[in-house]
């Protein structure tokens, strides 16, 4: 059951990821990214991270991507113009990336025997454990992040408001 779910949603994630890269229209890319995020949320559930799965959907799919879609619709962005790529990048890009991926996968596989298996339910963390850790061990980073978010809000308002002449 675990394996079937993993393969199903991993496939969806990879297909959506490829679709993000090859789609011509930004809206198509945005929807593919939402697909990736949704399937990642299911994988988080399989890994026992319930709270993170929910937050993934609320924050990423529900807020950040809505913002992206909103901006794409607002700017009425069309399909992107092709070209502008130099010959070396066109020739070397894909092979180099494949080598990069192969290297990563090889290293993972090398470490694999020591890492064991993931079974659903062997390690579950709900909101309670996460909250306890967040407000005890990670209180300072938490507060710093809140300041960061505040600065980001101010920055976004300053950048996006209309100039009053």
């Amino acid at each position: 059951m675990d394996l079937i779910l993993f393969i199903l949603f991993a496939t969806i994630a990879v297909v959506c990821g490829i679709s993000l890269v090859v789609q011509k229209h930004p809206i198509g890319s945005a929807l593919s990214l939402i697909g990736v995020m949704g399937s990642l949320a299911v994988l988080y559930l399989l890994l026992g991270a319930e709270f993170i799965a929910a937050v993934q959907l609320i924050v990423y799919a529900g807020a950040i991507m809505v913002l992206f879609v909103f901006v794409i619709m607002l700017l009425n962005a069309g399909e992107e113009a092709p070209g502008g790529k130099s010959w070396p990048s066109r020739l070397l890009g894909v092979p180099l990336l494949t080598v990069f991926l192969g290297l990563l996968a090889y290293l993972m596989q090398l470490m694999a025997p020591s890492m064991g298996m993931v079974t659903f339910g062997s390690f579950n963390t709900g909101a309670k454990e996460l909250g306890r850790s967040l407000f005890n061990n990670y209180l300072l980073p938490f507060e710093v992040t809140s300041v960061l978010v505040l600065i980001a809000i101010l920055g976004a308002i300053v950048l996006a408001r209309k100039e009053i002449d």
Binding site: L31, A54, L57, A61, G62, V66, M73
Partner: peptide
Amino acid sequence: SIGVLFILAISSAGVYGIALAGW
């Protein structure tokens, strides 16, 4: 065990139907 968050997540995803229909 995360029922409330589930509802929030689903309801926040509901906007895509409308936004996409409009676009």
